[in-house]
Computed example of a mutant assay.
Amino acid sequence: MINLDDLMKRIEKLEYHQRLMAEMMPENGYPFHRLIIRNGLSEREVEEFFYTCDRLSMKLEKQKAEGFVYNTPLFKEFEDELHAKLKVHEIVESCIVQNIYPALMKQLQKSL
């Protein structure tokens, strides 16, 4: 049976190796994934981010259809709902590179 100290050491080692692997990824390859790993976000926290992006993407499309082109409220909402460990400019740029919610991210980029 493994004791708690050994288990904690193994977890710390895995976390360290995970950070090293994230640094091995090419800079231009997967910047969004790198941010998630570097900031230690959980799968649930990433799912919440995607939920927010889904909702804001639909809101953006509705606003475009209504001729609404003022981006600040949408950007503020995104910024307010973004995980505290993430920086808005980093996440927007990384999503653009990885083609994650491209229409939404390009719109948000205009407010950076």
Score class of each variant (00 low, 15 high):
Lys87His: 07
Gln107Asp: 03
Asn71Gly: 11
Glu45Asn: 10
Glu48Gln: 12
Ala103Glu: 14
His89Phe: 09
Lys59Glu: 13
Glu79Leu: 05
Ser42Pro: 01
Glu93Gln: 07
Glu61Phe: 07
Thr52Gln: 10
Phe78Ala: 12
Met25Thr: 01
Met105Pro: 12
Ile91Cys: 02
Ser111Met: 06
Val46His: 00
Tyr30Asn: 03
Gln63Lys: 13
Ala84Thr: 08
Ser111Pro: 07
Phe78Ser: 07
His17Phe: 04
Leu108Asn: 10
Asn28His: 07
Pro73Phe: 11
Lys87Gln: 13
Met25Phe: 02
Met1Val: 10
Lys59Met: 15
Arg44Ile: 14
Gly67Pro: 10
Gln98Glu: 15
Arg10Asp: 09
Cys95Glu: 00
Glu61Ser: 14
Leu104Glu: 10
Arg34Leu: 09
Ala103Met: 08
Lys64Ser: 05
Met58Pro: 00
Pro102Leu: 12
Leu14Ile: 06
Ser111Arg: 14
His33Trp: 01
Lys13Ile: 04
Lys110Tyr: 13
Glu90Leu: 05
Asn99Phe: 08
Leu56Ala: 00
Glu81Gly: 04
Ile91Gln: 04
Lys64Val: 00
Glu23Cys: 14
Lys13Pro: 00
Gly40Cys: 02
Phe75Ala: 15
Met58Gln: 14
Arg44Asn: 05
Pro31Met: 02
Phe68Gly: 03
Lys106Pro: 00
